[in-house]
């Protein structure tokens, strides 16, 4: 009896610990020394339908290209303050309409514009075309970019990360300027947590998958 109780307690502790520490990957990727002080910093990420590894291989997530050129599973990035960030998002995922079309509008970037495969984008109607795969949104900075999806009918969709450029993808580029030092959370506003209530559980509610921090340092 005592043994069963101990096993039950162990299972509960394991479950709670697993919930509280759901395998945060990566750590912080540091871009502060990537360029001479005051020069723009290039930040490249890719997003896809399944990370393929770790405790949640089927979850959607991001990889970031480190200054050393390696793809790293991390959503916490250290950036220099008051610096222009030239960001490139390689979007391999299919899409859906936005729950709130407000996030279909590009805001907070330099010029309030982005480009998708070289074409200017100021807003995207997520209820038409391929929909939006994800958004890159930093609420505290008013920064929002809809990441236009690849067609869900595509026969060349990347299954698991890291995705090679031979797979169908959209390349979204934009620039923004970091503010003063501080931690600024970013997240996706597409309910992309497959299989979870309203799509906002799982990767949407776990640090290190569809959200993270811009750690801006002086």
């Amino acid at each position: 009896m005592l043994g069963l109780f101990a096993v039950a307690v162990g299972l509960v502790i394991t479950a709670v610990a697993g919930f509280l520490t759901p395998g945060v990957p990566g750590g912080i990727v540091n871009f502060t020394g990537a360029q001479p002080s005051g020069q723009p910093v290039n930040l490249t990420v890719q997003t896809f339908g399944a990370i393929g590894t770790g405790p949640h291989p089927t979850w959607v997530s991001y990889l970031v290209k480190s200054p050393q050129g390696q793809w790293v599973h991390s959503t916490d990035w250290e950036l220099p303050a008051n610096t222009v960030i030239n960001m490139t998002v390689i979007q391999y995922d299919s899409g859906s309409p936005l729950r709130n079309q407000q996030w279909g509008q590009v805001t907070g970037t330099i010029g309030n514009t982005a480009s998708v495969n070289g074409k200017a984008l100021s807003q995207y109607d997520s209820n038409s075309g391929n929909g939006v795969g994800h958004t890159f949104t930093v609420p505290a900075l008013g920064l929002d970019i809809p990441l236009v999806a690849v067609p869900s009918t595509s026969k060349n969709i990347c299954g698991t990360a890291p995705c090679a450029s031979s797979f169908d993808h959209n390349t979204i580029t934009f620039s923004f300027k970091t503010p003063g030092a501080g931690n600024y959370s970013w997240q996706c506003f597409v309910p992309c947590g497959l299989g979870y209530l309203f799509g906002n559980g799982g990767p949407m509610s776990t640090q290190g998958y569809m959200g993270g921090f811009l750690k801006v340092v002086a």
């Binding site: 959607v60 859906s96 309409p97 729950r99 079309q101 407000q102 279909g104 509008q105 807003q123 109607d125 997520s126 209820n127 597409v190 309910p191 992309c192 947590g193 497959l194 299989g195 979870y196 209530l197 309203f198 799509g199 906002n200």
Partner: peptide, 20 residues
């Protein structure tokens, strides 16, 4: 972008959409 928003209403159905 406003042209693509739904007409103004008191509530909006948080419908099952997207990946879910």
């Amino acid at each position: 972008n406003t042209a693509h928003l739904p007409p103004f209403a008191w509530t909006y159905v948080p419908d099952a959409n997207g990946a879910s």
